[in-house]
Write a protein that binds this DNA or RNA. Structure first.
Length: 584
RNA sequence: GGGACUGUGGCUCAGAAGGAUAGAGCAAGCGCCUCCUAAGCGCUAGGUCGCGGGUUCGAAUCCCGCCAGUCCCGCCA
């Protein structure tokens, strides 16, 4: 079952070739949804764009296409309007048949792609020995949603957590702990993760002030890199403790990730530089090995380098990223590598991709993409901080969302005189709280900054998770009230009668176009928009069209619309990493 | 100095391979529960799409210039 625009595209292609010859084959019919129901459901805008090429009037072109367009099974007779728009209105019988197919499919009529791609999604990426904070929120949530959409799309997805588990900071931390709290380096969990963060800060201060400490820290890094047993063990202890701490957050958010940190690429770094040298891309400048970039100038107007090896022989993160990109393409077989990293890194990725491309590490047909996102800001428009100016821990942020969801739920239960079990309350508060945080983030176009507001995300009205969850709950209400088993509705025959039914049906049938779009553009907010509109359209239908009291065959037909709405919501939300509730 | 991103009703945002009168939500005002949970639905009001040029049948969308905000630019990651 292909999407409706896809079906129409084929028809247009035939009509076009028929009317104007083979050379027009494959011309995009420029199909778009209409913005006004009086123009039908879809419009094709190609006649205007062909006017110059064919040296004919757009309306005449449109007429010739329409004369040869065989869409009578899908649409009412096409109409030509305005300067040459071809307007198409879907037929009732066609919609009914499509809905029946959708009903009978466990993927809601959406086939997996015929050309699956191996795709690496690099996201989350916290730093070892630090706690996850707001900064990791967007990458984790957006990355997970993108991975889920691509998985459903049929791609072979590798979810990689490129954790910061290497580099000078470990020399610093281990050196500091050795003098301040040696137990932490030999015994698991001797320190709380929060204390570790505090020690890290102190270590950083010492490092910046004390040259002797600096020297020792550098030596520790060298020891670590050369595999000194004691240092290595201390490092592993720290990594392990952090890892378990991260996992708690991932479990709460239901995020699957494979850890492959910076250290994984460590031993490949000399080879990376060597290969760049062999290709003549490396120039030594002030003792550092550099690749000079095309299209970048420094403050003095001279070409700007990407440093691949520091003058002290060490490597920095550009080299690690080059090694990672190369490994992912060569060894993992990635055809697409997607980096879900904040927008501030845009230049860095652009530079790394440029060097990798010049080195021939990104072959034809392989795509490396930075998927940028903006900052999380407080309601004052500044970077989100606690009242005392501290960075907000992700754990606290999630706790607070759940706490507020719970308080709101309890207030309503009291007002409505409802009695619910503690288990029910806890589960609803948890799902509502976490899904609100996720949805608020995902529903914005990720490229802009985003203003974080508990009040807005938890609101029961508007484009929020609770509003969508409620639409799903309403269907479950019908099912309980009427003792309906949606999985066994028997022989269904659709019958669309009222306007809200048509509107809902058409929206349901456009899911696959949206998912294709999200898979290619990597913009989860498009899916959110779709689901929000679906909820609105379902609520309008629910308001105007009684279901359980309707006469057959209308009753079953409406039950199918309910079922499809619920299943679409559930699927769509699951692709955003959001669970649904039976009652709330 | 160079570069990237952002600028759309009071507020938060959709809409960018050009398409018909620019869409939502919140907040405001007014309606709708003998009927599947009103956590809902309907109506009203609110916009020089930052500013100025250009391209064209047509521009929020493409090009150029300017203004404002955020961020990045050789040895941190």
């Amino acid at each position: 079952m292909s999407s409706i625009p896809e079906q129409l595209r084929l028809k247009f292609d035939r009509a076009l070739v028929d009317a104007f010859g083979e050379e027009l084959a494959g011309t995009d019919p420029l199909l778009a949804s209409t913005n006004n129901p009086k123009f039908g459901d879809y419009q094709a805008n190609l006649a205007m764009s062909l006017a110059k090429r064919l040296k004919q009037k757009p309306r005449d072109i449109a007429q010739q296409i329409v004369d040869r367009l065989e869409v009578s099974e899908i649409c009412e007779p096409p109409e030509i309007a305005g300067p040459g728009f071809i307007n198409l209105r879907l037929k009732r019988e066609f919609l009914e048949a499509q809905l029946q197919k959708m009903q009978g499919s466990d993927r809601l009529g959406i086939d997996p792609t015929e050309t699956p791609q191996t795709t690496v999604v690099d996201f989350s990426s916290p730093n070892i020995a630090k706690e996850m904070h707001v900064g990791h929120l967007r990458s984790t949530i957006i990355g997970d949603a993108i991975a889920r959409v691509l998985e459903f799309h049929g791609d072979n997805v590798l979810r990689l957590n490129h954790v910061g588990d290497w580099g000078t900071q470990f020399g610093m931390l281990i050196t500091y702990l050795r003098e301040a709290y040696p137990d932490a380096l030999t015994q698991p969990d001797a320190l709380d993760i929060g204390d570790l963060v505090a020690f890290y800060k102190k270590a950083k201060i010492r490092f910046d002030e004390d040259p002797e400490f600096q020297e020792t820290a550098r030596n520790t890094v060298v020891k670590l890199q050369s595999g000194d047993t004691e240092t290595r063990q201390a490092w592993e202890l720290l990594c392990d403790q952090s890892r378990r701490e991260f996992q708690k957050i991932y479990d709460r958010l239901d995020v699957q990730l494979q850890e492959r940190g910076e250290s994984f690429y460590n031993e490949m770094l000399p080879q990376v530089v060597e290969d760049l040298e062999k290709q003549g891309l490396v120039v030594e400048d002030q003792g550092a090995k550099c690749v000079f970039l095309e299209g970048y100038k420094n403050k003095e107007g001279n070409p700007q380098p990407l440093i691949v090896q520091k003058s002290d022989g060490g490597y920095n993160y550009a080299t690690t990223d080059l090694a990672a990109l190369r490994y992912r393409i060569r060894e993992d077989g990635a055809q697409r590598v997607v980096y879900v990293v904040d927008a501030g890194q845009g230049t860095h990725f652009d530079q790394v991709f440029q060097v990798a491309r010049r080195a021939g590490w990104i072959p034809e047909g392989v795509e490396a993409t930075h998927v940028p996102f903006g900052l999380v800001q407080g309601e004052d428009g500044k970077k989100l901080k606690t009242r005392s100016g501290e960075t907000i821990r992700l754990k606290d942020l999630l706790d607070e969302a759940v706490r507020r969801a719970r308080a709101d739920l309890e207030k309503r239960l009291q007002e409505e005189g409802r009695q619910e079990s503690e288990e029910f309350i806890e589960n609803v508060a948890n799902v509502v709280g976490l899904s609100s945080v996720k949805y608020a983030d995902l529903s914005q176009n990720r490229t802009s900054n985003y203003i974080f507001s508990y009040d807005k995300m938890l609101s029961l009205q508007g484009n929020t998770a609770p509003y969508l969850l409620y639409a799903f709950v309403r269907v479950q209400g019908i099912s309980r009230k009427g003792a309906i088993d949606f999985e066994n509705l028997g022989e269904v025959s659709m019958s669309l009668q009222e306007e809200p039914e048509f509107v809902l049906a058409k929206h349901l049938l456009s899911l696959s176009e949206i998912l294709d779009e999200v898979a290619s553009e990597l913009l989860p907010n498009r899916l959110c928009q779709y689901l929000f509109e679906l909820s609105q359209k379902f609520n309008q239908f629910y308001d105007k069209c009684p279901v359980l009291q309707a006469e057959e065959p209308l009753r079953t037909s409406r039950l199918v619309l309910c079922d499809l709405s619920a299943r679409t919501l559930k699927l769509g939300l699951s692709l955003l990493g959001i669970e649904v509730l039976e009652r709330m």
